[in-house]
Design a protein around this nucleic acid. Structure first.
Lengths: 210, 210
DNA sequence: TTGAGAAAATGACTCACAGTCATAATACTT
DNA sequence: AAGTATTATGACTGTGAGTCATTTTCTCAA
């Protein structure tokens, strides 16, 4: 219960995550080793395993930061005064900023999206990052509902369902842009921005309805 | 130049890919080893490396089959007589069938979508699978154009751009369904089909325009 | 048919890395 | 200051990708 001890523990925990971000982000998680993280953190490898049960668990800590950062930016950008539709436009814009300004965090979310590393065998304390992700979806759903009430968004959408669909669609398009733009550009004369803008236009179009 | 020799070579190549599908699909690529593939194929490990330069290269051969299968099913399902819009609906349905009937191939495409393993250092003979993927996008673009000509699809979309966006969106939604449905169902009362149906409805809505 | 040279196949080996654990260092308590 | 608990360590183990010296199989000219 010694608070100072807990503080030291928390600090070391965060320091390890800091080191992991440096290493994973610079070489990619697959090419980065725990030895490198340990060295970066100035610790022995064994120590890492006192704080994280596996390399994936360490990665999940980064994922948590990614979701938390995104959620915070959403919350900061929202304006209660605005219509639901306007706020939806806002979070789309914020999301795009996040994509450009925190590419590594965005990448972490992408990587998570493609993995099944959330076998329900995972202890519940290790699922905090999930709650952050779900909170983002729910935020979107709330905005859609609000927009339906104030008349700025069509009424025939189930809010939570639509929020998931938009999330999935947007992740898909941004994934395409992030990972495959070289191919797209090679085979057709298209720029990343064109695809992104088009996608956002379509979502706005769908939100408004006829 | 000995044709019989080439045939034997091709057969062995395909046999290795068959073995790799069995092993990779049953354990997941990350948990499958080249030794296991070799054993499944009844060959020594070294032999695999005469046919494929790496585990990833072997995986790309599977990816090629995945794209080729999908493309074939698209082509079989299309009906020249129909409007562009009807044919777009058709390929969306075919795609969904593919998702359900060839989950492993679908998964391979997903995995590809999330990886950068297409460093442009890749020899061009190893890029055939890419051409298959691009062909699918172009097929979609053609249908959109046709629909614009016959009036069944709105005119203010750039066909190729829209094809990429729809592809990205659809991959994103299906990825969400395939990888994260357990979470979605846990936090909200939603079924995979609801999300998929909603997504397809939205695409159709967007294609038609106001 | 044979045997020499080419082509294909092999599996023991190397190297890199995740995760473990017996031991060492440090911190806390009285 | 001694004893106990906590935290840290890095040598070690196991696994798997990829290599390569050696062996086996094929080819074809004589």
């Amino acid at each position: 219960m010694g608070t100072p001890k807990d503080i030291r523990k928390k600090q070391r925990y965060e320091a390890i995550v800091d080191a992991a971000e440096k290493v994973f982000f610079s070489k990619g998680i697959d090419n980065a080793s725990m030895d490198q993280v340990a060295k970066q953190a100035g610790l022995g490898k064994g120590t890492l395993y006192l704080y994280f049960e596996s390399k994936n668990a360490l990665y999940r800590a980064i994922l948590y930061r990614a979701f938390a950062t995104l959620k915070k930016q959403f919350e900061e950008a929202l304006d209660e005064e605005n219509t639901g539709f306007e706020n939806m436009k806002t979070i789309l814009r914020v999301y795009l900023d996040f994509f450009y300004n925190h590419p590594h965090y965005f990448n972490a979310i992408l990587h998570f999206q493609n993995d099944l590393f959330n076998l329900d065998a995972m202890a519940s304390e290790q699922q905090i990052y999930l709650a952050e992700g779900v909170a983002i979806i729910e935020l979107g759903a709330q905005l859609i509902e609000k927009g339906q009430q104030d008349g700025s968004i069509r009424n025939d959408l189930k809010a939570i369902e639509a929020a998931y669909v938009f999330w999935g669609q947007t992740m898909g398009v941004l994934q395409l842009v992030q990972k495959k733009m070289a191919i797209v550009t090679h085979y057709h004369q298209l720029e990343a921005d064109q695809l992104i803008v088009q996608h956002f236009k379509l979502i706005e179009y769908v939100l408004k309805g006829s």
